[in-house]
Design a protein around this nucleic acid. Structure first.
Lengths: 327, 327
DNA sequence: TTGAAAGCGCTAACAC
DNA sequence: GTGTTAGCGCTTTCAA
């Protein structure tokens, strides 16, 4: 690979002139300018970004840590963040922790060592202390835990789940099962809380057994099946996109008429859900806004670290389609 | 952020000793060793990977260029490549070109400038000349075009499509529409060729009009609808996962009994397809093997660039499920 | 067994 | 306007 020296030699100028024509640092006269440019072209010179970063002391790179790149919710977030970052002249370095806290920790260190200028993180769990002492601008996205010292941007989970539940209630449903992955995630606990609040507002009892933990694996459909058989709900509220999948499998396994005998409300929207018929009615999270807002907060923090951390909760919307029938 | 100098000063040793205890370069006596380690801990020192890379002249980083991170086929590939890379001590720098050739080019340059040690690329199209002159080890994955000078690992598309078509034929179908995105992709053309060969082997005529180009956008369902109305097929063969989506929408739009009146065979397997009932019968590509083989070829090329480029074509399998009925 | 110092490729301060 | 040079943080050679 040619270096800036090779270009300078070929163009018959100093390396400073090469650097300046390439970076627009200071005025370079047209003749030298074009000499440099043609030398660059004929050598196929690409500036060494590693050396540049070392010298400039920043990398124009942001780290983005997600739990699972394969989940359409996160890949949608990735797209949103990348687009926003590109617009601001930043690249993003993506790391997928595969929901593994140790791997997450290692990846974070790797990102720090690569000198990313900042980090957007969707942690595997709510334990984010180590992120607070990273000595790096960090914003928490989606799974914002309870850290008060980091910028966070999330969604109003309780509100969203309450709205969803109220919709189900308005359709006449009284026996509503809430399918959750694990109560270990604050996001999920808040969704439970929203569900509870809707019930309470309607003067209906809250049955803890109606909140069924299905685990974090995509293929654990047994818990859902058992719960449906036991509690005979008329509607299912899946608190996560993966859980919509599980719900559908359970409904089919039990050969229930869908949505006539049992309704389904999902959380998180995703393109491939249109394979499902009836089309899934769902609480949709504002992916694009989440990504771009996270980026904004991070850039602001990079520019100036001396302002208090903010927490932004974005609202979700309900997309009414076909999977919820009147009870 | 503390540097190696800070650590050396605090530990009362030279920076060489810090480097050597951290990297195991040469023997360091236990007392100095532990002095260094405790200094590292108390400062929260993380080595500057940028400086390290500049000095070592490699980054232990591989670039991976995909057309769309949001497509489960590619995100599956990403997971496979990342896992394989991690096992070999490499990190991967992911770039998503959003099927945009100019963006692809820019991203590739950015990757080169970041001094990745090698690049795995799934290009947006079949024009890969610029990748050949990048001065960087490159392996082409999935969309391998016709470059003879690069290592390539793909799938036997013609064979796979032929097997799929033969299966449809064996189920008694005679009017089979092949849904494709665009004939611009060699992969797709090969799938068409496999379809043609199966027809030919069965002494059946090949109707070019039965190959319907739906475009690369996910929501262009009109072409499929029109083709179904015009040609009255008993089976659809979707040459791509997105096209399965389109096929399903078209089938529903026309209110055809599925799979009784019209069967569907997909290409590419993906978790979320289980939302579809009947379960999708599909040609499945060996994601894991594709990813790990690509990595192997790339590592071999990085280690020694003096061997002729290889092309590996992996076989696909047919997963028979429920979406194909007997005609 | 350890330290001093050169140098990776670049940018920016300084000199002319 | 342009060239020379110090130095970013690290690894590694050379000296001791």
């Amino acid at each position: 690979m040619p270096t800036i020296k090779d270009v300078a030699k070929l163009a018959g100028v100093s390396i400073a002139t090469v650097s300046n024509t390439l970076n627009g640092g200071r005025y370079v006269s047209p003749p030298l300018r074009s000499a440099v440019l043609s030398a660059v072209r004929s050598l196929g010179y690409v500036p060494n970004g590693v050396a540049r970063s070392l010298r400039r002391r920043h990398t124009q790179t942001l780290g983005f840590l997600v739990p699972d790149i394969t989940n359409p919710f996160f890949s949608g977030l990735v797209k949103a963040v990348e687009r926003a970052a590109r617009k601001q002249g930043y690249q993003v370095l993506l790391s997928s922790s595969e929901e593994n806290p140790e791997l997450e920790f290692d990846l974070t260190l790797a990102l720090a060592s690569r000198q990313v200028d900042g980090l957007i993180a969707v942690p595997t769990g709510d334990s984010t202390e180590y992120l607070e002492h990273l000595g790096l601008p960090v914003v928490l996205l989606d799974r914002i835990g309870r850290s008060e010292s980091l910028d966070r941007i999330g969604v109003n989970n309780a509100q969203a789940a309450q709205t969803g539940t109220e919709y189900l209630l308005a359709q006449g449903h009284r026996r509503i099962l809430l399918l959750v992955s694990t109560l270990e995630l604050a996001n999920i606990r808040e969704r439970v809380e929203g569900y509870r609040r809707a019930l309470e507002a309607a003067h209906l009892p809250y049955h803890p057994e109606w909140v069924v933990a299905c685990g974090r694996e995509a293929n654990s459909v047994e818990a859902a099946i058992t719960a449906i058989q036991t509690h005979r709900p008329t509607a299912l509220f899946a608190a996560t996109n993966r859980l919509s999948l599980i719900a559908v499998r359970a409904i089919r396994h039990l050969r229930l008429a869908f949505p006539e005998e049992i309704s389904l409300l999902g959380f998180d929207d995703f393109e491939w859900s249109t394979l499902l018929e009836p089309y899934l009615t769902t609480v949709v999270q504002p992916l694009e806004a989440m990504g771009s807002t996270a980026l904004e907060l991070l850039l602001a923090r990079i520019k100036d670290n001396d302002h208090p951390p903010q927490t932004l909760l974005l609202p979700c919307e309900l997309a009414v389609r076909q999977s919820v029938a009147r009870a």
